[in-house]
């Protein structure tokens, strides 16, 4: 009965309990912290152990050989540029939407917010099936593409759409938080200084929400690069890195899938660390 309830012996006296002022942290909390630290370590282990295992099982020679394969290089390059293109193209519409969500009240706003989160909760293979119908030759978009000689299925453009579909909530939510954090008064002040609403958006709201938007762009880009389920349905070929890893595993087994995975992870990690670092540099410049 003594845990987690403080007793008179180890905890604060009845008189002071909850008074806030003389309340000494009882030892029980430390035991609680220890328990939580133990449980937390298990979670970290779950993440780190398989990755570390994979890295340790791959020799530098294997890595080097794999990195030199044209197929691997092509797939990684394809993954990076399709995700980047999807992120940049869709951000043009996603950032204004985030602004509306942060600033305006409108009918069925909750529904819109829910719709934006949909890609996060539906299975991505299902998302891929849905997208396939949407971009296939028979669809409106597909026909429009065909008219200019573009077939989305099996094309980098289709891959970019699939990546954007699953990753766009990250950008919208981050940008919305960013815009919500810009004091309304600053926008009002800019209006009273004769600026048009467009100018206010580009010179006040956007720069002040930039930190969150950059962070959202990086997240969206990262999430797009790691997408597998939706992309494999829309485009098995050309092969993005996650699909290539899956194919090597299916055709040749674990031993052959590992080095590609390690190379891809290393490149992704380097890319994000550099992006984060650049974003931080830029932001500290804005604030100071």
């Amino acid at each position: 009965m003594s845990w987690p309830f403080p007793t008179n012996r180890t905890g604060p006296s009845r008189r002071f309990r909850g008074s806030g002022l003389n309340y000494k942290e009882p030892q029980n909390v430390n035991r609680l912290q220890l328990t939580f630290i133990f449980l937390g370590s298990l979670v970290l282990l779950l993440i780190v152990a398989p990755l570390a295992g994979m890295f340790l099982d791959t020799t530098p020679t294997q890595l080097f050989e794999t990195a030199r394969e044209t197929e691997v290089q092509d797939s990684i390059w394809l993954t990076i540029y399709t995700s980047l293109a999807g992120t940049l193209v869709f951000s043009i519409a996603a950032i204004p939407l985030a602004y509306l969500l942060a600033r305006k009240q409108f009918p069925m706003k909750k529904l819109v917010t829910g719709i934006i989160d949909l890609p996060v909760v539906i299975p991505h293979s299902a998302a891929g099936i849905a997208l396939l119908g949407f971009v296939s030759r028979e669809s409106v978009l597909g026909k429009m593409g065909s008219a200019v000689g573009l077939n989305f299925v099996g094309h980098p453009a289709g891959i970019a759409i699939a990546m954007a579909f699953v990753s766009i909530p990250f950008l919208i939510n981050a940008a919305r938080d960013g815009f919500a954090g810009v004091p309304l008064r600053l926008e009002k002040a800019a209006l009273t200084l004769g600026a048009s609403p467009f100018r206010v958006f580009f010179t006040i709201s956007l720069p002040l929400a930039w930190r969150n938007i950059i962070s959202g762009l990086i997240l969206m880009f990262a999430r797009g690069m790691s997408e597998f389920g939706a992309v494999i349905v829309v485009a098995y070929h050309p092969m993005i890195a996650p699909v290539l890893i899956y194919e090597r595993f299916g055709s040749f087994g674990l031993k052959y899938a590992r080095p590609v995975s390690v190379v891809f992870i290393l490149i992704s990690l380097t890319l994000f660390i550099v992006l984060r670092w650049l974003a931080k540099e830029k932001n500290s410049e804005i604030v100071k």
Binding site: P183, R185, L186, K188, A189, A190, T192, L193, I204, P207, L208, I286, V287
Partner: peptide, 12 residues
């Protein structure tokens, strides 16, 4: 021209 109570100077 309106001067706000907390001046609302653009921080960036």
């Amino acid at each position: 021209g309106l001067v706000f109570q907390d001046h609302a100077v653009f921080p960036h």
